[in-house]
Amino acid sequence: MTLLSVSSLGVTAPGGRALVSDLSFDLAAGKRLGLIGESGSGKSVTSLAVTGLLGAGLVATGSVLLDGVQVVGGAERRLVPLRGRVASVVFQEPLTALDPLMRIGKQLAEPLARHRALRGAALRVAVSEALAEVSLDDARIARAYPHEISGGQRQRAAIAIALSSRPQLLIADEPTTALDVTVQAQIVSLLDNLVEARGMALLFISHDLAVVSAMTNDLIVMSAGVAVERGTVAEVLSAPKDPYTAQLVRSARDLDAMLGER
């Protein structure tokens, strides 16, 4: 059984406008897949549809099988056990994704307590271990509020929270977009190492071809809610079939050339 199997997924907005249409892909345990596309192409909506977290008014059709459970139209009480344990999400903007009024340590303790049944001293140890795993060794981080630490530290904390439940699938939804370029590289390599070490499956979502190709070998290019191209990074780069992909590749090359000249 595949870990995640998406077939003919469609998502429509309240007015009936299609945000995603007829999207299908499979992701086996331990494998990686990149979803790439410009903003508004439906890639983030896809990540929410996969975990059954679509906002009010958004309607999903088709089928999403996560660990064998049908997510589309699934009852909330059947989806809650999947989240965290089977699939966990790192969101784009850690400043709003973290509770602004709760200390980092406490936010991290919440899923640890839930999924690993830890209490008291054992929980405290697990919190500092989880922070150390994302290279947040400073003991003050656990006592800090989100606004008191840097953007990179916040995203590391968010990754620690997402991994605390030991998920089989990590969904990273533009995890580096809100960060500085130097911090981006650190987060990408951190994610790469952690996913590798734990043998997790990864669904990596980004608008940045360079970042995606650093993380995955297989990718799907989305445009206006439709998968316009799929294949290995090498295939897509060397022979883009869709005009949108060609443009994406060209602009990535221009950027590379520009960076190379410096």
């Binding site: 809650v80 994704a97 929270i161």
Partner: peptide, 21 residues
Amino acid sequence: SDYLRSARAQGSGYSEALWRH
């Protein structure tokens, strides 16, 4: 809010997340 969605993404039930955060 985003933080409510992230809490739910880590397996928190809706009412639990609403109460805690």
